[in-house]
Design a protein around this nucleic acid. Sequence first.
RNA 1: CGGGGUAUAGUGUAACGGUAGCACGAGACGUUUGGGACGUUUUAGUUAGGGUUCAAAUCCCUGUACCCCGACCA
Length: 565
Amino acid sequence: MKQTQLFTKTQKFTPKDEQSKNAKLLIRAGFIHKEMAGVYSYLPLGFRVLEKIKQIAREEMQKIDSEEIIMSGLQSKQIWQKSNRWDDNVVDVWFKSKLKSGKDIGFGWSHEEPITNMMINHINSYKDLPVSVFQFQTKLRNEERAKSGIMRGREFVMKDMYSYCKNKEELEEYYQRAIIAYNKFYNRVGIGEDTHIVFADGGAFTEFSHEFQTIAEVGEDLIFKVPNKDEYLNQEIVKLKIETKQDKNEINKEMQEIFGKGLIGVGVLAEFLKIDVEKTTKTILFKADDTRIIAVAVRGDRDVDEGKLRKIIRVDDLELLSEESIKELTGAKVGYAGMLNLPNNVEKYWDYSTDGRINFEMGANKTDYHNINVNFGVNIEKPKEFYDITKARDGDIEPLSGEKYKTYKATEVGNIFNFGTEKAKDMELSFVDERGENKPVYLGSYGIGITRVMGVIAEKFADEKGLVWPESIAPFKVHLISISQDKKAEELYKILKDNDIEVLWDNRDKRPGEKFADSDLIGIPYRVVLSNKSMEKGGIELKKRTEADGKIISTYELIELLKKY
RNA sequence: CGGGGUAUAGUGUAACGGUAGCACGAGACGUUUGGGACGUUUUAGUUAGGGUUCAAAUCCCUGUACCCCGACCA
């Protein structure tokens, strides 16, 4: 492609309404256009990158016998009601509208339900299984807050794949094949080395789901590497058994109620009471399934992991108790709750970190009051069991080995999930097995955030001059820059094209400096310069984007070299 | 959804309540041609609505948009 034909221009200044590196660079280089917060259009260069990434995903999915389809973006309410996911309180990212007739419709934020519903028409017998289908879809999600450029938008492209299997074993086998395909995909797009499969919460049906996380500074997630193993964990499933240092000879003191007006926050509190922060206790109250009230105690310097709590109490629906309810329940404002004297209907859970302490502090359930010198077996019954409810953080210790988890900031670029028969049961998708018995189908769901992958790559490889694309997904392989040698360049341009080498020819009437600067900004892997200077030296200058200096070679050598890559 | 911030030309940035200016981009002409050149010239703007004032980009109110932090995030 000739650059004069490219309607986009590069910008010298970074847009002021973008903070993230990926959006700044992609906009400056003309890959994307921002429509609104979290919504971007893909311009010729960006589109080419996107298509390259999609093609690689396509090839890898086809290799594991998945068939490509494209589903509608409009979805019907009835289908989603079957699995109880139409409700805005259950799924909070819905975009919804109505047909002229008044019928409710939703804009697809996921396609598990519609596709499973569709499969009812196609899966009847065990002979129809297994089936795997995938698509590239623009997902629409009404995110409360879009951020990080194209990494987390309201509209984004996702490759989603769904597998339908006869039984657990067949699904498990396909799941493993999908993992292999995913790894190949990440390798091919250039982020394989930093992309790890990470164990994550599996929800109700399976113990684990898996995420593919790419280690990157922009990452929103913290992943934990298990000591001495090549195994990574998502924050919410990191096992902890936090021990608190305690002098065993400390003598139990008399419990006291201390007045401390407006002391909110453990740091301030500990200072005021002149005790160690580890003596303080945080009591958090939750509402589960609308009916249960849960009180959780963790050591003051730690936080509750709601994911872990959900698992312990076996609910999906969990939220913090409202201010009014806390007041009603404890008789105190938020910030003074304690495990002492809570009504009997409140379920109480203690984290390991609260165990083994002598003379600890706790909210008094009385505004502005805290109890100190609380002791198990004296003021409050020692819990029969302690749990792992603490949110993991950097520096935490794996209970098994006693060694620290290593942590990395990472961004989730893929996710695979084993639904078992749960989804099929919701959607009433079943098949008849060899013996004529009706059985639910096993569903696996596999996603790759295509646009997010592009964002991560843009961000990870960029240097101070601009973007640096891996060869496999670069918009063009070669950036041909001609300086006062347009005739020769035109010939070379044709030769490159005849050899099926994707080339962007900067045939603009611009000064060399500007062409080089633009070339670096756009980030095409190979730069080929044709100029009086290069001719004097005997040919063409070839330079990789990642290298500082080029080398002079002949046209023949150039073609041979580029063909190899 | 809570908190904070910002809004001036396609982009980036100035202007005490008193003439909206500069740079990049884009157009024209000329000089230039290996790291965002130079000269002359043209183009194009105060987020929307209301208020205060002789006078508003500037002060006030309301809306909108965008950014950041937190919450949320199959």
